[in-house]
Design a protein around this nucleic acid. Sequence first.
DNA 1: AAGCTTGGTGTTACCGCTAACATGATTCCC
DNA 2: GGGAATCATGTTAGCGGTAACACCAAGCTT
Lengths: 342, 342
Amino acid sequence: MPEVPGGARVSDTRAATMADVARTLGLSHQTVSRVLNGHPSVRPDTRARVLQAIEDLGYRRNSAARALVTRRSQTVGVVSFDTTLYGPASTLAGIEHAAQQAGYFVSVAIAKAVTAETVRDALERLIAQSVEGVIIIAPLLGTVEALPELTRSVPVVIVESGNAPGLASVRVDQFEGARKVTRHLLEQGASTVWHVAGPGDWVEAEARVAGWRAELTGAGASVPELLRGTWRPESGYEAGQKLARRTDVDAVFVANDQMALGLLRAFHEAGVRVPADVLVAGFDDVPEAAFYSPPLTTVRQDFGAVGRRSIDLLLEQVVHGGTETRQAVLPVELVVRQSTLR
Amino acid sequence: MPEVPGGARVSDTRAATMADVARTLGLSHQTVSRVLNGHPSVRPDTRARVLQAIEDLGYRRNSAARALVTRRSQTVGVVSFDTTLYGPASTLAGIEHAAQQAGYFVSVAIAKAVTAETVRDALERLIAQSVEGVIIIAPLLGTVEALPELTRSVPVVIVESGNAPGLASVRVDQFEGARKVTRHLLEQGASTVWHVAGPGDWVEAEARVAGWRAELTGAGASVPELLRGTWRPESGYEAGQKLARRTDVDAVFVANDQMALGLLRAFHEAGVRVPADVLVAGFDDVPEAAFYSPPLTTVRQDFGAVGRRSIDLLLEQVVHGGTETRQAVLPVELVVRQSTLR
DNA sequence: AAGCTTGGTGTTACCGCTAACATGATTCCC
DNA sequence: GGGAATCATGTTAGCGGTAACACCAAGCTT
């Protein structure tokens, strides 16, 4: 350490290493390592002294050195999109929680747009960081196909995507959710059910469309023209304006709660009463849905469970090496509120 | 590589190293390193050959080895809370984006509860991961004080907290936002403004209370009894029920949009008309706010900017070493909609 | 033409940790 | 009581990079 004129030392205090800890006790660094790794053959009193010294020196293991020699970074990567959407945000939280429980760190890469290129880019960045596995929240159709061979070089779990041939995936049973809500609307006396869908290139959007259509067809109801939105409330508002002009609409299933909010707004402005004139249901069960006007019937997804299952499937591959291609499908729950009760 | 009876090789293919790349060209690994680090003295054709070989072998630098020797992990940590709240989620996205631009990775640690202990825990985990700096989204009063000395061992930026003596911080000007919205309500003819605040232990909640009170006092208006919520729509609903019973309420400033939604719902149920009978304003400008019934006047915060500034302040410390204690305060914008226009 | 720079490359020594093997002191067994 | 097994610990060799220094050929001085 260089002396400075004033007499003070320039503090280039490097953090203590294992060797430092060992030295204060007259032991070898290996013994310290053994204590830290729970190796059985260390005398209890030695162990205690080591732990004390570690405490005293404020020692922490250098994760880079550890990762280098063990080839394990204890980190999983998450590729996500716009985390201000309720679904992805909740899923991320669930993943982080589950990863933490399992002793893993979570590194995120948020792709702004949902294009093959940005996903690839995010994936590259995570792999460059030596993550042990990656969870891709890839809600777009075609995203999976666009994934580079990179996905063969690291364990991957796809969340909320369609069929990911050869890859493990976790998704919520959108199809069944859409069926349930559609059936519910029919049971409430609707002659048929209109649908405001999400963007056509989203897997979830298409699954909901399919479920809606299947249920209508199965019930012998006519299948009205499909309306498309963007997931955002604005688009729900516009769809609402269109539907309000018609006289043959008595029930609408909107593909997510945000759009449903916009639609409710448009209906309100147009003097269309919900549920008296038209029944309206959404999808997601965001925390606000119970407080819309009127409170919204919707389909609840357990995003926490999505996160947990994702981590489970990922660590299964990471730990056991194999490329399990297990596909988990999680159930949904219909939450009935005022907007569909006549 | 062990031979397997079938004749196939058990693929324990370790990823290529710098030495592997160098060997294929008859160079030393150091030359490869020079190419990768943009060192000037490498012959152009050598550089090209190296890059080609890297491509061919699919070589990627080992980040652990690099981190070990450079003592830089190129990673920043983020401690966040419940990321399903609009603010934290947006801030996280902003941080990730800015970090990416700066060539950093982002590792997140989500603390479930907002207690000193969980924050400390999250911080420990990030530091154990050798992050170069940490951004703490710490909205609770007292969180800062509860931060362990750890914050002295790694650069830290506090987001959305109050005064963090000796620490760099970024926050939105909540106080001014509250003043603006309160003033606006008074200008719209309200005799005074009621306030549904957030939890008393949240810094933002208290700043908004202070701004509201300051504006009322400055304008010579009486300061009504304060109501408390939890940020969640349920609590706004309850506050709305209480206020709906009174006859002396003609304007309410709710501390966030979610609670405002709950309050609007309660008012609606009680037959209180907004804005005809009572003016209502919120705070945050969530994407849905424009579609509430009625569309909500609120205060917009630029969370993307919060993220950017946080990274700026953090990297300033990381790169220049100093413990800058700069405090950034970001402006807010009043967004006037129907809920406050008579 | 001899000595000095300079550009391009190779050699070597770590970074801090874990794994494998080596060592010395006990305990155990017949 | 002597050799084997066992326990507790030490020693050594990497993991895959970067940095510092060494080296050599070519170009530039004077």
